[in-house]
Design a protein around this nucleic acid. Structure first.
Lengths: 209, 209
DNA sequence: CTGACTGACGAACGCTTGTTCGTCAAAAAA
DNA sequence: TTTTTTGACGAACAAGCGTTCGTCAGTCAG
């Protein structure tokens, strides 16, 4: 009743929602289960009808985010296209995801260290796979002479960093629309790789020429 | 005695050193004063002969980092040079600082929310001033026709993001030397701005041509 | 030698944390 | 209707937190 109208049908969903919000703005360790309960509108003990532990709540908040990202990237890469177009698709996917699911992405980055060791290792492995796919695309573009690669790893980091950063400040109501951010960051990334028709390519995306 | 040989003459310095280390790898909230004390080799109560509170300890760890960064940037900008050369100097300063003082920079970014409101506001103000100076340089380069600016703010964010990211992974013993990282990221940033002789400019830096 | 000062220490404090448990009303199933 | 399940609740828990305090050995100035 007193809560803002975030669509949550189940109490369990509402808990994850409010927990994500609090984890985002205060951090996992600084967030109390009593605060989460208050945000949902119930008492602490009632929380345990829906969650197993605080740690598992964090896990379920961070839960699928890396899987979802990997899945979207796989789709973007798998299309039968020019290397550069695939790279553009991956860039679009990366920034769009980082912005549209900013809170989860941010938590996934910031609270990695709050995870138990084994869970953390799994997430890191997925992250590495994700970065690897970007890097491979960059290398491929370089080998085809369509990009001037300075250092594939650092170019990859540069792209990843943009996403991480976006996740920390993007607000849907902000002055910069998501499409503009994606468009410009894609252009910037292609320029950084000295892709010849960088700007014009991105302007025609994703619509066909 | 049992501690690694980090140069710390005063006990107070050792405390800041170990606290920085623990804050870096576990986060402020997850770090116990008892852990800090143990790392230094003393007991908790002895800590209070050197610090006022945990919060003030964080403050003194994050303390001067933004001031130092601003001071270095001011020097880099103030030299009487070509816009692009000043921009290169600022890029060099940004990445070098983010790498060489990675732990403090990382803590400064990650634990901003752990600061009391007024202290946080001050740091944010300094950060904005810092970013503003980069942005002004980019705008100036654009107005002089020496760069093709897509969006000054996003270009600035792109640069800032590289530094933030570097601070999270740079290790002195790593495969990438600091000079290489700086060199490549500077080139990348100039390419992103479509500065004509981007690569050759950076190679001649900072030595005179 | 005597005195003041520094800094490490153990014990304890008040408080908050995550979590458990028994209870009890309301809804769903029989 | 009776029975079973669901989920909210207050009370309580042990553990851990930051912080305080009195004590006491050692150091250095007088």
């Amino acid at each position: 009743m007193s809560q803002p109208a975030l669509a949550a049908v189940t109490t369990a969903e509402a808990i994850r929602e409010q927990a994500a919000l609090l984890f985002f703005e205060r951090g996992y360790d600084a967030t109390t289960l009593r605060q989460v309960a208050a945000a949902v509108g119930i008492k602490v003990s009632s929380l345990y009808n829906h969650i197993d532990s605080k740690e598992q709540l964090l896990l379920s908040v961070m839960g699928g985010v890396m899987d979802d990202l990997l899945a979207l990237q796989k789709v973007a890469v798998s299309r039968d296209m020019d290397v550069i177009d695939r790279l553009i698709a991956v860039l679009d996917c990366h920034i769009r995801f980082s912005a549209s699911r900013a809170r989860e992405v941010f938590i996934g980055n910031a609270e990695l260290r709050s995870l138990p060791t084994d869970a953390r290792a799994k997430v890191i492995a997925k992250r590495r796979e994700y970065e690897r796919r970007i890097q491979d695309l960059i290398v491929e573009a370089g080998e085809q002479g369509k990009a001037e690669v300075l250092d594939a790893r650092l170019h990859t980091y540069s792209i990843v960093a943009k996403g991480t950063h976006v996740a920390s400040w993007y607000k849907p109501a902000g002055a910069l629309s998501m499409d503009r951010i994606i468009n410009i960051y894609a252009k910037a990334a292609l320029r950084e790789l000295s892709v010849n028709d960088a700007d014009t390519r991105v302007d025609g995306w994703p619509a066909a020429a």
